[in-house]
Design a protein around this nucleic acid. Structure first.
Lengths: 109, 109
DNA sequence: ATTCGTTATGTTTGGTAAGATATAACGCTC
DNA sequence: GAGCGTTATATCTTACCAAACATAACGAAT
């Protein structure tokens, strides 16, 4: 028996960042490519692009720097702001997990 | 911009109780009827029954007392144990919300 | 100019989950 | 015994979301 949680942050009622999106951002950061990140996470490029696009349209600062064409066809870099989103969400998530683990011990189920 | 969360408790890798199921349990407790609870939550009787059945099969103590036939066709009561599940989950959930609200203030997004 | 791998975007297809429908058993009431 | 409203359960249909497919633009390299 174990406790599970999912958290996310909304903006204008729409999902801004959550587990899946942060994971995707991390992959983009590692691979410097949306398509490579999508492949690594076994999702379609289109889905990955859509998710990233939603993040970008809701964010107040640029999250990605994209290059179309050119050497190796282009690529995508995650901005410092984007990286801070990753870091902040991950620590938040971990803090939540730790908190719930403690609370969970108090229960009698 | 706001933070959202969903938590649930699993047993043997399967969902035991969560937001939706606890809500359903509450309705059953209020209406003393699975079918009335389903109608109130605008879900099919079948779905409600399935959800409750999963809770019951995973729980170690009885959660519901059901009567088929008889006056008014029968009905369903939530046991004390079932009520304790509701109460414990709801306080856990509220504690988590309060915790996240505090953590959220620390972020810079 | 051609090739290449990427970003960008529309369209179509398909698999799954939700809903609708159907049927039976039960036991009190009348 | 007939009727009623409930629990219980199977099957069938539908609607929706996700995946697959298709196509174009781009720019460096050769």
């Amino acid at each position: 028996m174990e406790i599970k949680s999912r958290l996310w942050i909304e903006k204008e009622g729409k999902p801004f960042i959550g587990f899946g999106r942060i994971n995707l951002l991390k992959q983009v950061d590692e691979t410097a490519s949306i398509s490579a990140a999508a492949k690594a996470l076994k999702m379609s490029y289109k889905k990955a692009w859509n998710l990233l696009n939603e993040i970008e349209t809701l964010a107040e600062q640029p999250v990605l720097v994209k290059n179309i064409g050119g050497k190796n066809g282009g690529g995508t870099q995650v901005t410092d702001y984007g990286k801070s989103l990753i870091l902040q969400f991950e620590t938040l998530n971990q803090n939540c997990i730790n908190f719930l683990e403690e609370e969970y011990k108090k229960l009698e189920l």
